[in-house]
Nucleic acid binder design. Structure first.
Lengths: 338, 338
DNA sequence: CTGTTAGCGCTTTCAT
DNA sequence: ATGAAAGCGCTAACAG
């Protein structure tokens, strides 16, 4: 391995001078700078970040901890985060938690040991509080994306859950629906709670009384959506909902699939809409009406907040950024009902 | 920051003993081990990997360098790679190159400086050779995924491009198509060249002469697919192809979109099929007939090959793993032609 | 503008 | 089974 000592010897300077050249110190004579740089190129020298980190206390490593990179919503967050990280000279370590707090905890531990400078986190629920506190204890900056743990304050960037839910529900109401089912996620998530509240409020404002049989809490992947949907449509005639709002793209797709199995036509017999596009390639299948959250921006801006904090360029108070969604009306919600 | 010295003092042992406990050395008395472990828990000590790396020369960091995490094919590779890395105690650094050799080069440089123990690489073309050679020079193990740079040999894992292309073309031929267009990627990619060759061979075996007007080379994202497709369908009547084979999911979707714009019905007027599913959520839109490459396995096994090599558990000769695809016949290729 | 000294936190090597 | 000394590659702090 080539070190600054090798460079120093060859260039007839001290190792410290080499260090200064590498770090672009301005108090270096142009001529020596050039000479050192030449030797660096000659010997194909690459600085050792481990050694540097030992004194500087920074690794230029940041982590992105998300439930699952396979979900297009998180994929876009990752892409945004990575773009910003690269731009600012940081490396991105990726971790999938599968919404499992234990896995999340394991990850956070490994990341602290790896010496990451900061963490961009989509927490998997209330249970995340304990390991998030470890980050606080070690004063490792972190930023919440999409969801927060209210007990442990930190910078956050998320979608406007209230406004987005309202938009979606009002769209359905405008089409004539009054019996609207809401298949939500687990209430341990902050965004799920916000969406639940907004759903109820929007209905009430429209003079519709929320029906408990229409409010379904799931744990995302662990649930049997076929069963959930079957139960919903088997409600006695006058009770059967005419529209389903799904809390994310995954639930939306599974709802669609279950309805297909049950041979219930969408949107004729059942309107369907959800948060976030299930497609990552735009326009592949323009069918589902969705509220598209700006996932790329959430990752990009989240990384910016994080690195500002790492570099102490952030105010002491926590910052909360809320981004609006875009309602994309397609055919799954259909035309106004007669 | 808590160090082994803090632990040592509190436990009345030498720092070296603490080091041995951390590293699970067997030559430690049970009683002292327990005591040290207790103090470690008490002080919430986390080993500093930077310091460790300085002597051990390993960081337990591996990189995954792919064109774009947003493409479901690469998303699945990433998920597989991450799962295996976590399982073996490694962290995964993610890098998107956007098929840009300069960006790829920049990344490889940064990664070497970050001290990664190995790289899982989807090279962006012939131009990658120069920076891949840098890895060789520094003896940083790497494994090719999906594509290779033949001039620089290394372990590789990829789909069976010959067999897969053959399957797809034979499926179209079996449906009665003889005028089949192939929209491929840039010939600087090994898999693109293999697919091109397999395409020609399969046609010839079926007694069909490849038509140069049907063989289109694109650069993936930079191209105007609307134009390409428009040109293809505007060929004089007898010349117009009846089927299009797209070399990846992105081209497939764009072909579909262009045909929609041109109001050409799929599959009635034009059959369409491609490599890799554009959907990451299974069964969302079961329309496109595709050859699904086992992307998750490619990432998972690729990571395994890589870490074996890092830990010198691999044979000296390079290993080449080729995985078969699954042909998923859906409606975009239609029924047999009359 | 450049060099010297010391030390970051850990592990290797040799003693005991 | 445990400890002391030295050094991994780099930079902060001071000297010159």
């Amino acid at each position: 391995m080539v070190t600054i000592y090798d460079i120093a010897k060859r260039a007839n300077v001290s190792p410290m001078t080499v260090s200064r050249v590498i770090n672009k110190s301005p108090l270096i004579k142009e001529s020596t700078r050039l000479k050192v740089e030449e030797v660096i190129r000659e010997l194909d020298y690459v600085p050792n970040k481990q050694a540097r980190s030992l004194t500087s206390k920074e690794t230029r490593l940041v982590a992105l901890v998300i439930p699952d990179i396979s979900n297009p919503f998180f994929t876009n967050i990752a892409r945004g985060a990575e773009d910003k990280a690269l731009q600012l000279g940081y490396h991105l370590i990726l971790g999938n938690t599968d919404e499992n707090p234990d896995k999340e905890s394991q990850y956070i531990g490994m990341l602290m040991s790896a010496g990451v400078d900061g963490v961009l986190l989509v927490p998997s629920g209330e249970a995340s509080a304990s390991h998030v506190k470890k980050l606080v204890k070690r004063s490792i900056p972190f930023v919440y994306v999409d969801r927060t743990i209210p007990q442990v304050p930190a910078d956050s960037i998320s979608g406007d859950n209230f406004q987005t839910t309202r938009q979606l529900v009002q769209h359905l109401i405008a089409l004539g629906h009054r019996k609207i089912a809401f298949i939500n996620g687990p209430s341990s998530l902050s965004n799920v709670r916000e969406r639940d509240q907004a759903f109820r409020e929007t209905l009430q404002l429209a003079g519709i009384k929320p029906n408990p049989a229409y409010m379904i809490e799931t744990h995302f992947k662990q649930d049997n959506f076929d069963e959930i949907i079957a139960k919903l449509v088997s409600l006695q005639q006058g009770e059967r909902p005419t529209a389903i709002l799904a809390a994310n793209n995954f639930i939306g797709v599974n709802t669609l699939r279950a309805l297909r199995t049950l041979q219930i036509r969408v949107p004729e017999e059942m309107a369907v809409t959800c948060f976030d596009d299930p497609d990552i390639i735009p326009d592949y299948n323009p069918f589902l009406t969705v509220a598209k959250q700006p996932a790329y921006d959430m990752g990009f801006l989240g990384m910016q907040l994080l690195i500002e904090r790492i570099q102490s360029g952030a105010p002491a108070s926590t910052r909360k950024i809320v981004l609006p969604s875009e309602l994309i009306i397609r055919s799954s919600t259909g035309k106004p009902k007669e």
